[in-house]
Design a protein around this nucleic acid. Structure first.
Lengths: 285, 285
DNA sequence: GATTTGTTGTAATTTAATTACATAAGAACT
DNA sequence: AGTTCTTATGTAATTAAATTACAACAAATC
């Protein structure tokens, strides 16, 4: 928990003078970190020891230490704090907010993701006879993206966004097959069924979903990304971006595991796309 | 540019003693920010003024100010530096690098995106009789995602990832229709054709693509995201995430423009999904 | 209304950081 | 090779900042 949040969270327990200090700091945190204790005391119209006591109350060693913590809070905290899109936001505002909240989501995802599980997932994927990606609704596009990535690896890969096809595919899976189920909430009934069916047929099921969800319980391996989603908006945005990045990571792990000879093959796929493009550099669509 | 990078970048211009200071700081930055100038001087085996001069050389006001800057550098752990994945990277390394480079890409995208064009695109979209999203390959999943988002708005929206269907759709478009063409490079020949055809049939064509590319020239409105892509990897990753965020922004602008009554309708769509899920909160797949 | 507890400020003390100056080391020039 | 100038570094003095100890005051309780 960063200092700024801590201050906000404990305003109630502050005394009158401490409150004054808190107000000044919250109003201009950027100025605070470049002020001396005397300057801040003057701004808040309290004495210096009061400021010092305030710092101690927030579990810092003293004023300089407090400034250090505050600086760190500002570095990653500020742009991400309270940045929800609001009714009256103009284009500049909502554009900035969406970029920032997406970045914030990626930041927390990075911190929470379990490297160990990623590594095991890569293990499983590299040894797969066949890889299937299943997602519904918004997660379907993530599944498509995954298919597009893994397809280049020259591995048998399929992707279905249709329940019936998913079901058929799951029923026909067998030992050595890997099924990747993608769902933000992990509560989509149909997908849970698919996961269960795939497991019954000895496939390894990797879930890219919420930890401790019904879907997670059906999976062999769970990659959870508990990203804070803005529930005011009626669409999952940040979580889906995090899922995509996770797919990127798995794909990267995959290529690295396969070694350099394999990556030459990737280059061939890349080159083969040249013909369908207007000349000049690069790749992608 | 953060202090840590600055130190690394100017090692060559340092004197012998300053070098010693730099080494100690780079070796244990976390300890540095909690040390006094005396402690650091001792660790680096130099005098206190040398440390102070070192701080000044890095454009800080002095040692305390330097610690502040350093703390901020450490807080975001250099996430905005685009670090490339390398052959010998382990899971921790490539996971961190991919997260960070994606965030870096979003950061530059945010800075470069043209708010004015976004606003005009939202204008056009809100007035569309029908919206079509076209993408091929990796961009197809972005188009799908866009469809999923705009579908909830109860607007006629289609999405094709098949050249023939795209072509047919483009030929049948007319005045008032909006066609959104998605392509990272803007050099996919087929998609350029589609854009041209749609324009000939009086549709408004929005391109989410590279500035000054063949596709861009065929469009009525170009939303370019010149994101630095890691060309060593054979897949476009960061750019596609940026495209998705851009779609999010357009969708958000769309809902805001439509007003609050409209958003109640969105809530209905959201609620209607409840039945297909295991109970408990929220939305998304 | 007195006593106690908690809050705040003043002044003294301590600690840390900075400046000024001196010395030493190294480069350039004779 | 010696001299001089410049730059780099350290010592000691100074200044600034932060912390502590203590006193005064306010509010609450009995």
């Amino acid at each position: 928990m960063n200092v700024l949040e801590k201050i906000v969270g404990s305003v109630t327990s502050f005394s009158k003078s401490e409150r004054k200090v808190a107000d000044v700091i919250l109003a201009n945190p950027q100025i605070t970190i470049h002020s001396s204790i005397a300057a801040l005391a003057k701004m808040a119209d309290v004495s210096e020891p009061t400021v010092n006591r305030f710092c101690r109350r927030l579990d810092t060693k003293g004023f300089p230490d407090f400034k250090l913590h505050l600086a760190q809070s500002l570095a990653n905290g500020t742009p991400y704090v309270n940045r929800h899109v609001e009714e009256e936001d103009g284009p500049e505002a909502y554009t900035a907010k969406i970029f920032e909240s997406t970045m914030a989501a990626l930041d927390t995802a990075r911190q929470r993701v379990d490297i160990n599980t990623i590594n095991r997932a890569v293990d499983v994927l590299t040894q797969a006879k066949k890889i299937s990606f299943f997602g519904l609704g918004a997660s379907a596009s993530v599944a498509h993206d995954a298919q597009n990535k893994f397809f280049r690896f020259n591995v048998p890969v399929v992707c279905f966004d249709d329940i019936v096809m998913q079901r058929m595919s799951a029923i026909n899976s067998s030992d050595g097959d890997v099924v990747v189920c993608i769902s933000h909430t992990g509560r989509t009934k149909n997908l849970c069924d698919i996961a269960a069916i795939a497991r019954e047929n000895d496939a390894t099921v990797i879930g890219i979903t919420a930890y401790d969800s019904p879907l997670a319980r059906e999976c062999t391996l769970v990659l959870s990304l508990d990203v804070p989603e803005d529930t005011d908006m009626y669409m999952p945005m940040a979580s889906r971006v995090a899922q995509l990045v996770l797919i990127d990571i798995l794909a990267t792990g995959f290529t690295l595991r396969r070694g350099s000879k394999f990556r030459e093959n990737l280059k061939k796929v890349k080159d083969s796309l040249r013909g369908s493009r207007f000349e000049k550099k690069d790749f992608a669509n």
